[in-house]
């Protein structure tokens, strides 16, 4: 395995990271492509390690979790749909569920994706890969436009596994303030990105 992370090996890959990762993940899903998997690993595993350590994992536990997470990525890659999610988002959800299971020892209830009980889902239209490449850029921009207070509660939630009341205690704020900051941050992002971004 000699291809470096930028993918300038045998594979002819897009230069944009988000698009490249989506292509690689699809290659793993469709062709069980080990080279593509190794490239995904080289990109995501070091980021997953930082993520897991920020979530309260020891470095040893993080290494073990990364093995689990990346094996799940390999096994579930067939289910990945680039119209529905960026590769990083898809891998994020696997990592999140796994760390809740292992680090917090709690169950993670999830709806069935195709549950007939749910109402109709808005289908992605047009060139989905281009759409989420643009969305990703706009999301990045929108995140920088959040107020400092809003960005902080978002980061503490997603990156530090802090519940509403843990954030309230840590920032010495009323619980209601924490909740409204999260609501406002999300509202702001949706305003910038449009509903169903």
């Amino acid at each position: 395995m000699r291809a470096d992370e930028t993918g300038k090996g045998k594979l002819d890959l897009p230069a944009d990271t988000a698009t490249r990762m989506a292509v690689l993940l699809q290659r793993v899903g469709r062709q069980r492509d080990r080279e593509a998997f190794a490239l995904l690993f080289r990109h995501f595993a070091p980021r997953l390690k930082s993520y897991l350590i920020r979530q309260g994992s020891s470095t040893e536990a993080a290494e073990e979790l990364i093995q689990d997470i990346m094996l799940l990525v390999w096994r579930k890659a067939e289910q990945y749909d680039p119209k529905r999610a960026a590769a990083s988002t898809w891998i994020y959800t696997i990592a999140r569920n796994r760390r809740i299971d292992v680090l917090r020892r709690e169950r993670r209830p999830e709806p069935e994706p195709e549950d007939p009980m749910a109402g109709p889902v808005v289908e992605a239209t047009g060139d989905a890969v281009i759409a989420f490449k643009q969305n990703r850029k706009r999301l990045m921009q929108a995140m920088t436009e959040l107020s400092e207070e809003q960005a902080l509660v978002v980061k503490m939630s997603f990156m530090e596994d802090k519940s509403h009341s843990m954030i309230a205690r840590e920032l010495d704020l009323p619980l209601g303030t924490v909740k409204s900051r999260l609501r406002l941050a999300f509202k702001r992002l949706r305003e910038v990105l449009g509903e169903g971004w």
Partner: peptide, 12 residues
């Protein structure tokens, strides 16, 4: 799903 994208971006 949209909120999970925030997680994906922060992971990235």
């Amino acid at each position: 799903r949209a909120a999970e994208d925030v997680g994906g971006l922060l992971l990235e």
